[in-house]
């Protein structure tokens, strides 16, 4: 799933770099290497291990084909999500620089598609809740398979979105997604089986190597945020399809007074702004070029929620940082 540079335009590459950079910054602040500096050599060698493991092909039963692991779930289960994310960045960077496996410009996308989903969604949404009340073999196997499938499905979907937004392929969005998702479902299942078997081996030989989050819960505010965010995703992704297609109040009023739903821009300033908007509006009219209205609406809704969540997170982080600085100065 390593994306090449040629599949992206600089704007999309830069946007994904920003997302990955923010996540990397958050991960670095959570690792606390100054107190636990044994972590760094562990991360370095674990990264080299995953790299080597990716070179080893495993027979996929019943298919005659072979495949290799991605490694983000495996690293998360050993190092924890934050350290695993930083390790994956190192792996992907070396692969991009040295082995032409993924491009340098596409590195931000590859980090997001392969590391973010595996380490954070796989780690916090599946591994951690499942292992909360103790680790068992069944839980390890189930968590590995579920997390791998989730990671690869989301990663493949992100590739489709990023490539479509870049305008590289003429393949309609739905057909592209329909090609990518089933293949990556199989790959995810195989990766889950391989990851699960490795973790089970570790559990039997050296169980102390497996990551267990020992941090005390910080209260219900995070839970509330997750619930709100999930609700926003569900509403924007599904309920938006039920939205009325009739014009809103303003458009209705303009239609009746100006004999048309769109007012024409007259002044030069308005025309310049209209041209700028036409260039930047990737999801014009809440749709994706070349795809049906329904899926275009879903994508627009999801994109809007994600962008808002990201903006909120950045704003909250800045406010907290300035607040701390003021507290320190006073």
């Amino acid at each position: 799933m390593h994306m090449s540079d040629a599949l992206l335009v600089p704007a999309v590459g830069a946007a994904m770099y920003l997302c990955s950079a923010v996540t990397a910054h958050r991960s670095i602040s959570n690792i606390n290497l100054k107190e636990d500096y044994k972590r760094l050599p562990m991360m370095g060698v674990a990264g080299a291990f995953v790299f080597a493991a990716q070179m080893v092909n495993f027979t996929i039963p019943g298919t005659g084909a072979s495949g290799h692991i991605c490694g983000s779930i495996l690293l998360t289960a050993i190092l924890g999500p934050y350290a695993a994310f930083i390790t994956m960045i190192g792996i992907l960077m070396i692969q991009a620089l040295m082995f032409a496996d993924g491009g340098i410009l596409a590195l931000g996308c590859n980090i997001w598609n392969m590391a973010f989903y595996g380490c954070f969604l796989g780690g916090f949404m599946i591994w951690k809740p499942m292992m909360k009340h103790g680790i068992t073999k069944k839980k390890i196997a189930t968590a590995s398979i579920l997390a791998s499938i989730l990671t690869l499905q989301l990663g493949a979907f992100s590739v489709v979105v990023e490539t479509t937004l870049s305008g590289i392929t003429d393949l309609p969005f739905i057909q592209f997604a329909a090609m990518m998702q089933p293949i990556h479902l199989v790959i995810g299942l195989v990766e889950g089986l391989i990851t699960g078997s490795v973790l089970l081996y570790l559990y039997e030989t050296k169980p102390e190597l497996l990551w267990m989050d020992e941090s005390v819960s910080r209260g219900s505010s995070k839970k509330i945020l997750v619930i709100i965010f999930s609700a926003a995703i569900i509403v924007s992704g599904l309920f938006s399809l039920l939205a009325s297609g009739n014009p809103d109040g303003l458009e209705w009023a303009i239609e009746r007074t100006a004999n048309g739903s769109d007012l024409q821009s007259v002044s030069l300033f308005h025309q310049i702004l209209s041209q700028m908007q036409a260039r930047t509006a990737l999801l014009a009219d809440y749709g994706v070029a070349g795809s049906s209205d329904q899926f275009g609406t879903i994508i627009s809704g999801l994109t809007g929620v994600l962008l808002l969540a990201a903006a909120g997170a950045v704003a909250g982080s800045l406010i907290r940082r300035f607040g701390k600085k003021k507290e320190y100065e006073s």
């Binding site: 674990a46 291990f49 391989i194 078997s197 490795v198 081996y201 030989t205």
Partner: peptide, 12 residues
């Protein structure tokens, strides 16, 4: 699968 990669991981 498990023992091969697991061995390599433990050695690493």
């Amino acid at each position: 699968w498990g023992s091969f990669l697991g061995q390599l991981l433990i050695r690493s």
